[in-house]
Design a protein around this nucleic acid. Structure first.
Lengths: 242, 242
DNA sequence: GTTCTAAAAGCGTCCGACGATTTCGTCTAG
DNA sequence: CTAGACGAAATCGTCGGACGCTTTTAGAAC
């Protein structure tokens, strides 16, 4: 699958197929960044993997300059780490980093849930959120890892969107949590997975009930569960960082 | 292999939102980004200003590729906005965006203050934080805008560093708040300025008293004051965004 | 097997080029 | 005199190549 497109005459084979919200957000570098993030969710890129520039330029059919722009972007988001003269690597998160990340993410998600609960004033929004939560739980039940990570991301997007605070969407480090999720997805127990997945439905229900306090508590509990899971994970879930 | 000597020299912290582990972090693009951020604090770059690539490459003495890497980086941080085929502009924040930004920043800063209050266990840390707060208040009193913005940034860096949660430092959108501060610095009243500046000392004192709850409240009050100031600002403080 | 050295690979930066798009000045029509 | 169309200039997005520097690797010497 995904055979490399031929560039017989040096023509670009790239056609925009991402979010068409704004016509000014479609550059080659963004496309590459999106491809890598998607690859992490799908498992084709694993934490610690070395990203070799000449290799990627060939596989993605872009120039080195655009690729380096993308890597810079990803490094700023904490998805890859750049070592001078040694290249780019998919970032690996050790246990403390994950706990720090959760600690940082929690107040942001609580805020997002509170805002969403205050602003969830149309059936469309409520339905979208409930559907997003259901999709996450579904993907988790089916152990479809790529779909789960994708749907989970979508759930948070909808949550933030309903809250109508665009700065939140900019700040919440979702791609980095994708990295963490990708690391532990294959290791956590079935019960941990189910417990975690059920949290999204609870958050969604509290939001559509327009109960900010309950939504806040639901997120808090959700994170407490995740923290517990991280504490129970064996040490080999966290690769020795380069 | 000889084990690397652990660096326990207790140096002052200089991390903002960048990767700090790399010893020689001086790439041309990073240098440019730093120059632009500093220029915003100093006032040589004003919100809304058009950044023309050929002009900047000449003035900064770097190639266009490196400049574009830097602009990409800054765009990811929300400091410049990139309009396809229309160039890069220093971002402008309208009132709602500023309020959203404050709302997002507040729980992060409260967390940072709580963590710092829990972990402020050496006189060095306490002194560094108090000194940073004093510097901010000093610069504000002297109406030295560049120094004030610089010191304010340093204060938050120290606060985050004491808390020992590196993810916080990565997530807190300080450069973007610099932008906001740069916008209102010349407009707010003297009393607003003084009230705001005094907040840093209060936060610092609560932290060195190792009282997380008090530190949390101090940050909360600080943000309430800032929010009030933003509400009182005239409409012309927020340039019509391009 | 260990150590040293030289080649190879890979990264950081720069330059020049071409097509695409926007912007702005100019010119014509009403 | 103003409004709209046209075209040239300016600027951006992307590409390919080039050179110097650092790290890694592979082979030779011991």
């Amino acid at each position: 699958m995904a055979s490399t497109a031929q560039d017989s005459s040096g023509r670009v084979i790239s056609v925009a197929n991402e979010d068409a919200s704004n016509p000014d957000n479609t550059s080659a570098a963004d496309k590459v960044a999106e491809t890598i993030i998607r690859g992490i969710r799908a498992g084709t890129f694993v934490p610690g993997q070395h990203l070799v520039e000449p290799d990627l330029t060939r596989r993605l059919g872009i120039s080195r300059g655009s690729l380096r722009e993308a890597l810079k972007h990803l490094a700023a988001a904490g998805i890859v780490t750049l070592n001078r003269f040694r290249g780019a690597y998919i970032a690996t998160l050790d246990r403390k980093t994950v706990l720090d990340l959760l600690q940082t993410l929690e107040p942001l998600c609580r805020l997002a849930a509170r805002l969403a609960a205050e602003k969830c004033d149309t059936p469309q929004k409520a339905d979208a959120l409930l559907a997003a939560a259901a999709a996450v739980e579904d993907a988790s039940r089916q152990r479809n890892r790529a779909a789960y990570l994708e749907d989970r991301r979508h759930f948070y997007s909808v949550l933030v969107e309903i809250g109508q605070n665009h700065e939140l969407g900019r700040v919440i480090p979702l791609p980095r949590t994708d990295l963490f999720r990708a690391q532990i997805e294959t290791i956590q127990t079935e019960r941990q997975r189910q417990t975690h997945a059920s949290g999204y439905g609870k958050i969604a229900r509290a939001v559509v009930d327009k109960d900010p306090a309950a939504a806040d508590r639901a997120v808090q509990k959700h994170f407490a569960g995740t923290r517990k899971t991280v504490g129970e994970l064996p040490e080999n879930a966290f690769p020795a960082l380069v």
